[in-house]
Design a protein around this nucleic acid. Sequence first.
DNA 1: ACGACCGGGACTCCCCGTTAAT
DNA 2: ATTAACGGGGAGTCCCGGTCGT
Lengths: 226, 226, 226, 226
Amino acid sequence: MSPAVSPTGETDDGALPPRTKPLGSRERRRIRTMREIQTEALRLFGARGYDNTTIEQIAAAADISPRTFFRYFPTKEDVVLWDEYDVVIEDSLARRPAGEPPGELMRAITREAIAWQYARDPDRLLARHHILFAVPAVRARFVEFARDGIERLIRGLPGERGEAEDLKIHLTALAILDAAGAALDTWQRSNGKEDLLILLDQAIDALIEGVAELRPAGPRRRSRAR
Amino acid sequence: MSPAVSPTGETDDGALPPRTKPLGSRERRRIRTMREIQTEALRLFGARGYDNTTIEQIAAAADISPRTFFRYFPTKEDVVLWDEYDVVIEDSLARRPAGEPPGELMRAITREAIAWQYARDPDRLLARHHILFAVPAVRARFVEFARDGIERLIRGLPGERGEAEDLKIHLTALAILDAAGAALDTWQRSNGKEDLLILLDQAIDALIEGVAELRPAGPRRRSRAR
Amino acid sequence: MSPAVSPTGETDDGALPPRTKPLGSRERRRIRTMREIQTEALRLFGARGYDNTTIEQIAAAADISPRTFFRYFPTKEDVVLWDEYDVVIEDSLARRPAGEPPGELMRAITREAIAWQYARDPDRLLARHHILFAVPAVRARFVEFARDGIERLIRGLPGERGEAEDLKIHLTALAILDAAGAALDTWQRSNGKEDLLILLDQAIDALIEGVAELRPAGPRRRSRAR
Amino acid sequence: MSPAVSPTGETDDGALPPRTKPLGSRERRRIRTMREIQTEALRLFGARGYDNTTIEQIAAAADISPRTFFRYFPTKEDVVLWDEYDVVIEDSLARRPAGEPPGELMRAITREAIAWQYARDPDRLLARHHILFAVPAVRARFVEFARDGIERLIRGLPGERGEAEDLKIHLTALAILDAAGAALDTWQRSNGKEDLLILLDQAIDALIEGVAELRPAGPRRRSRAR
DNA sequence: ACGACCGGGACTCCCCGTTAAT
DNA sequence: ATTAACGGGGAGTCCCGGTCGT
């Protein structure tokens, strides 16, 4: 579990990755506040459990009012899910080679997003995924969140594709996300002892193998050439 | 909206499956009550929206007390998700040929569960999936629900398998479920006009194609973590 | 300010007036709880002001949860407005002579409702009207409340009347209510020193005089016989 | 929905009244902004309902910040109530003949205020009163508002009167306002089809008739309090 | 088994005060 | 000198669970 060393020597806590366009001071401040709240929340969740921690307690610990908590995180679940790599994704996208097959693109984005958090603050990632694993409501929201991300990504893809093609990409991306989820789960169960990125690769390989064993159903009912 | 008649003539599609063991009269009564509650709930959801309908209103419409609602459905979401095929699954399982590859088994179970509802009461299935599609919380709970089903199924599988093998089955099953979800979504968006089972087969074919295009990552091990 | 002496010798606190049909034990209990809550609320309002008192404080003083407060009183305003004579009104109605002109009926009902509270617990009535007078939101809700009462009463009136007749009754009732409001205001400003019922009669007389001085506008624009 | 042309040929109905002192440019600008905000608000209220529209949405539609909304309108209700005739009232007052009986004065002012809006922008008046009728909180605030107006007017009346006289005026004015409210309600329920000013006259006539049927209570003093 | 009653936490909305930016 | 941004706080609604009596 190698802790993150920012390549830039910036001293401010929570340096972000090199950005195409830097964030305004307001945005920076907002992110810092969110991280502070998250820090307190994760601490309390770890100590007393997710369900046994109320927003009021989190707010008190973070020295804000309950009302303000909701200004930053629309729901209690979000304080677990949030991380800064959301911002990173579009950067990743910009760096992918043109013409890369969409499936590979999805995999690469997923991998980078995870790797980034993993390198930067593995403890926080671990704490978040302990809860993610244990609390259905949080997990559910995560899935929803990821699903939205996929749709946005597909819509953002260059070129014209048919519905069938989009469906293919969509399902591939979903399967990759499930694989990532499984990797994260295993990693979290090992308490961060295993190497997350290796687990991720293994999960994707397992996915490829498993799906390859399915027989296409198509010919049974459609005229499309066998 | 005509109930599905499979063009292939396969007998399993939607036919009322022979039950291994019949239900007790108490169980029957419970199921009838649940269906009544669900009927009223779906009617109200359709008329005023899911979020604008309170449990109190559902209870009033179904002539029960709010408290009793929760005796039948642990949450508001469940009244959308619930259907009788839960009971059907173990029957399906019992009828699968021994030695069937797990992936195929998962696909067959999924297909039968959907086909059963589709043949029996397509309008209700449609109403439920309209909501499922529109309300994130319900969708989330559905995913959770399905995920649990997979784990139970895997644990129930005969024979010994290693962790790697289980992971493979797990991810394959998840991918199939996602495909089923996509098919259901498309079907629901078409307002039931399209043939659900054909959509399901198409989705699974799309999944197979899409995942086949991924390059295994395994061999490269861990040249660089990031 | 003569305190109420219940004509019945019942020892239970808060005896209600002789009822056509007695209330169930559940209803009795509910009314007692509401009075307890109101007592605490009025005490706090008197001590610290209406706006400076939170529901949480009232709930704490009444030994209930805030949630329960709202089960009894839908809004904070209602805890000021509520009194038991709501229940009394239909009794009053039943005792009015058949064929009484609607205007007189309205006046009599209003008078009895006020007189009942006035005789029974003038201090409470005074405390409530101090707030009613001082807090616009409460006063507003009171007007709304009274208006509803009038509409219900009109609908409950026997016999067939045209729209024009209903309008006449409606406006007369409203005017009487305003007179009652003015009487209550004056009474409250005198801190209960004046005789409320005399004030009420004076206000209604003033209303009659004042309106009598208006010239009908009708003939200017309508064909109806002068 | 044709603006009213009074059959009587009276010139005061709805004509833009000559202003005693013109408004400053700042004031003009303020009024224009308020009208813009109100326009957007009424549009949203009509489309999605009063309660389902948040201040944030109104602010967004009017391109201002939520905070700024409150600089123009102290509450959400006020955006419905506000209109420009407030300014008109003192003009009306100045033009009334000296020595006019107070009751007639009240009636005339009320009538002019309504007629002015009715002639100027009947659609807006209708939209406002649809909400006024449907949303208790708004209606309540309107009553409060009108009541204040009455008190200010009475205080502004020339000459010395006793308390009894003031009470008479007060109650008469209130009754007239209720009549105006009833007329507005009927008009609004007819969707603006009926002639508002005729309805107003009819309502006042009904009031006069109804109150005339009441017997003065005065002489009987206080034979029995209950 | 059911219903009535109550508790509690999440969450939204209105509204206001303070601070910051223009 | 306005305007926006931010934070705070109270009211109110909803979901859901526990308890008790029937």
